[in-house]
């Protein structure tokens, strides 16, 4: 019996298991060889200056001496650990909608686009994390601010729209240059919506270097669960309840109907 069949009969999704295995290996590498990942964490682990100006000067100093290769490896490891389990949908799309001899090529191009966008975003996130720590003068306080920011972002409508776009599956061309460009664009586009959806969550471990591993692991579980589900981990219900509670009672159904576009139902 094929291994995947055994997994299925045990109620497990073989692809999800494979992706989680890759993620856990990445987590293991981060935990065991912090000489790579510590390069990233140094940014926040060094004694944070209490003043914004000090933070900026430190930032300037850090980036002038930054080992870009180590930075890229560290960020890639972090992304593989946290994001791989959430990529089952796009990977299946690439796999099944590409010629069999082009499947791995398409997946590689997708990752190039995806990681490129995330790497650029991570540079910005590090800056934000450093400034947060510098401004607050304390990692736990910066972490608390990041958690608060994440909660606000998590409940926002804008984020819901970004999350919805993470479920988009574009056309993949089969022949010519388009067959190379489409997976690359898919990776970049998916990366963009992924960044806009998850940036606030990713900021938390960057502000809490002493607890980054458990926070990252929790984040990976949350992202994967939310990406596989339809309603954003029940946050939509929390949001709905809050909205219902805050909604002005004077708005009548007729008024809402009148406000609706003539030929369309509500869309984000």
């Amino acid at each position: 019996m094929v291994v995947s069949t055994r997994f299925r009969e045990a109620g497990l999704d073989p692809l999800a298991c494979a992706l989680w295995s890759i993620s856990l290996v990445a987590f293991g590498v981060i935990a065991l060889s912090d000489n790579v990942h510590a390069e990233l964490m140094l940014l926040c682990r060094s004694d944070p200056g209490p003043l914004f100006a000090e933070g900026l000067s430190y930032l300037h100093f850090y980036y002038s001496t930054l080992d870009l290769a180590a930075f890229a490896v560290g960020v890639t490891l972090m992304l593989v650990a946290m994001m791989t389990p959430a990529l089952a949908g796009p990977l299946l799309h690439l796999w099944f909608r590409s010629l069999s001899r082009h499947r791995w090529r398409a997946i590689t191009l997708f990752f190039l686009g995806y990681l490129g966008v995330w790497l650029a975003a991570c540079v910005l996130l590090f800056v934000i994390a450093l400034l947060l720590v510098s401004l607050t003068g304390s990692e736990p306080v910066a972490g608390a601010v990041a958690v608060l920011g994440w909660l606000i972002w998590q409940l926002s409508t804008v984020r819901s729209r970004c999350l919805a776009r993470c479920h988009q599956r574009p056309r993949l061309s089969v022949f010519g240059m388009a067959a190379l460009v489409d997976p690359l664009c898919f990776g970049a586009t998916h990366g963009f919506w992924c960044v806009t959806t998850c940036w606030a969550l990713m900021l938390i471990p960057l502000c809490l270097p002493f607890a980054h591993l458990p926070v990252m692991l929790g984040g990976a579980v949350l992202i994967a669960y939310e990406r596989a589900g339809a309603n954003g981990l029940g946050f939509s219900r929390v949001k709905g309840a809050i909205r219902r509670g805050l909604a002005p009672r004077s708005t009548t159904i007729r008024q809402r109907l009148a406000a609706a576009p003539a030929n369309s139902r509500p869309r984000p």
């Binding site: 590409s98 010629l99 061309s173 089969v174 022949f175």
Partner: peptide
Amino acid sequence: TVELLGANSKAITLGSDPSATLVKTDKPT
């Protein structure tokens, strides 16, 4: 085993009249 053989070159929008497209296939496949 299910495998892609080929596809048309771009998205198609249907109209009131019949619409046609051409599906090119990959020779080795």
